[in-house]
């Protein structure tokens, strides 16, 4: 926009006006803020390449004085079960996602485009269920799993999440936007409903499915609560849950800092980014 001439009646508020110096200061402040936001990552990556005693050196430097990167990462990858944890996380997240898609897509198509009795009740239930977090239903689900003896299995880790009411809602809204005329034209052309779903609806829904997949994968990759409840053994432990073993301070027991376990920073840095790399959004 055009430069704005100083108004003849200048007030004390005038300093708020965007001037180039003001803009420069904002930019500088924004970058300082960004440094604070990013610093934990920088510290983590830097520490993951340091020997343990250097991590807690009084004078922190980004570049390690002694480079231990190879040893540290080698240790995590080959000498500890961390790869198993990552694999567990992967199995659980992929498993959840696949079943979520398999259950949600047909249901949401029926809700969006087919008429049947009870559809509004079902949709109302879906909406209501969106607000129910896992924390509320965890007790009966846990007891149920105990009763059938499935605790500490992949099934137990996936079960509460294999139907995503959020996905049903999202896809239903998306499918509703799909023109009825095209579906009717396809019916006239002799497509069966299944063919309509597979050949028309599904390809058009790829962006929504992709967005949901990222969301779902990240949410369950980052989940700590449910694995904490159902996982009991090392060989089912997820990567996120394994962080529990490595908290460097135990304030409850001693109130004093304990030396960090030798491997921790590099382990965190392997883990701290979700592979899909986007959006926590788990609150939705």
């Amino acid at each position: 926009m055009a430069d704005i001439s100083p108004s003849p009646t200048a007030t004390w508020f005038d300093w708020v006006k965007p001037k180039s110096t003001g803009r420069l200061i904002t930019t500088v402040l924004l970058f300082i803020g960004a440094w604070v936001m990013v610093f934990p990552f920088i510290w983590m990556i830097s520490s993951s390449m340091k020997p343990t005693d250097e991590v807690y050196d009084a004078d922190f430097s980004i570049i390690p004085k002694t480079f231990k990167g190879f040893e540290n990462y080698y240790g995590v990858i080959f000498e500890q079960p961390y790869m198993v944890f990552l694999m567990n996380s992967m199995i659980v997240c992929v498993g959840i996602l696949v079943i979520q898609l398999l259950t949600a897509i047909p249901a949401s198509y029926a809700l969006a485009k087919l008429k049947f009795r009870g559809s509004s009740i079902l949709f109302g239930t879906v909406i209501a269920a969106i607000t129910i977090p896992i924390n509320v239903t965890s007790i009966p689900l846990y007891i149920g799993l105990v009763k059938v003896g499935l605790l500490d299995t992949y099934f137990a880790m996936m079960f509460p999440f294999i139907v995503s009411v959020f996905a049903i809602f999202l896809f239903r809204q998306f499918f509703r936007g799909f023109p009825d005329s095209i579906i009717q034209a396809a019916r006239v052309d002799g497509f069966s409903e299944i063919e309509i779903i597979l050949r028309l609806i599904l390809p058009s829904a790829v962006p929504a499915i992709a967005a949901f997949s990222v969301f779902s994968f990240v949410a369950h990759w980052n989940d700590l609560y449910w694995p904490l409840i159902v996982v009991q053994s090392q060989d089912k432990m997820t990567a996120t849950l394994s962080m529990m073993q490595y908290h460097p301070l135990s304030t409850r027991t001693t109130g004093a800092p304990m030396p960090p376990p030798p491997s921790s920073p590099r382990r965190w840095s392997l883990h701290s980014f979700s592979p899909a790399g986007c959006s926590s959004g788990a609150s939705l």
Partner: peptide, 9 residues
Amino acid sequence: TSTLAAMAL
């Protein structure tokens, strides 16, 4: 984008 459980450490 990061895992809070890890970054908490």
